[in-house]
């Protein structure tokens, strides 16, 4: 038990010596939420993202470096709806950080503040990687981003009451710029209305709904299951009856199936930036959604 008391006194010593941070330590699960925290908190938060645009947020591992980051976080900003179910619970448990446990003020999930699409009647393993709460790729609807921004500003103010006015002011400013940008995107994206899509994964449904596009088919036979030759043949057969105009995939999905369908149908395969940082120009939320709309329009020509 001598080791226990040594450890206890070490903990105590480090606890007392820990510097007082002025800024909140925020760990975002995805780059879009890291970008949103930067918009709302400015220099009152130090933000890191657990995933990069090259990583599938369904499938990363609870790496030691992420446990170390979660250990010091005041706030987790994640999508929720089980998107991060494979690794976030481990970060919360292994980091020993009670502030970010489910139900705490330091655990923020965007899915709590928006209406999710594709909520299944039942969930079965036969259905592939289906989320009981609904489709988690909610940030692809700018209306959702605005709702999450409001909730995030409230949460930041709750965690850091001294700077509540700062968060509220930055949120107002962001909401104004975002609303204006949304109007611009809607006008520019008018030619996209009714455009039929094939998508690699069922991840563009929110974007499609917002811009009035139609997701005709997905290349994955079931969510999270790799495209098979048999399923692609079926996709091709159906696309002869109901042609698709664009074939969409993300940075972290293999382009092979999309390119195969492009060759067969002539519809362009498009790697669409799915989050902030997915292309060099998509440096913040507005620049990213600009890029999404421009990429779609350019591919349609």
């Amino acid at each position: 038990m001598r080791i226990v008391s040594t450890l206890a006194s070490l903990v105590l010593a480090l606890g007392l010596a820990a510097p007082v941070h002025a800024a909140l330590e925020v760990l975002a699960c995805e780059p879009e939420w890291a970008a949103l925290v930067r918009e709302i908190a400015g220099d009152q938060a130090r933000v890191a993202s657990a995933t990069t645009p090259s990583q599938d947020p369904h499938r990363i591992e609870a790496r030691p470096s992420l446990i170390a980051r979660a250990r010091n976080a005041d706030l987790l900003v994640c999508t929720g709806a089980e998107l991060e179910a494979g690794w976030l619970p481990l970060l919360q448990r292994e980091s020993g950080n009670a502030r970010i446990l489910p139900g705490s003020a330091g655990h923020f999930e965007a899915a709590d503040f928006v209406e999710l699409m594709d909520k299944p009647q039942r969930v079965d393993r036969d259905m592939g990687d289906v989320h009981a709460a609904g489709n988690p790729h909610l940030h692809l609807d700018p209306g959702n981003v605005a709702r999450v921004a409001d909730a995030l500003a409230t949460r930041l103010a709750r965690l850091d009451a001294a700077n509540a006015a700062h968060y509220a002011a930055r949120n107002r400013d962001f909401q104004n710029r975002w609303r204006e940008a949304m109007q611009g995107w809607r006008v520019r994206a008018a030619p996209l209305k009714g455009v039929p899509l094939a998508t690699h994964h069922k991840d563009w449904v929110y974007l499609a709904r917002w811009l009035g596009m139609r997701v005709e088919t997905t290349l994955e036979p079931k969510p999270g299951i790799e495209p098979s030759a048999a399923h692609l043949a079926e996709v091709l057969r159906r696309s002869r009856e109901r042609p698709v105009r664009l074939i969409l995939h993300t940075n972290y999905q293999s382009p092979r199936a999309s390119r195969w369908l492009e060759e067969k149908t002539g519809a362009p395969a498009v790697r669409l930036p799915h989050t902030v940082g997915a292309t060099p120009r998509a440096t913040d939320l507005i620049a990213w959604m600009d890029e999404v709309v421009e990429t779609l329009l350019a591919a349609l020509k």
Binding site: L14, P64, S65, I67, A68, R71
Partner: peptide, 11 residues
């Protein structure tokens, strides 16, 4: 009993 140190590197 486990303790994660408040360091940038996992310890």
């Amino acid at each position: 009993l486990k303790w994660v140190a408040p360091t940038p590197m996992f310890l």
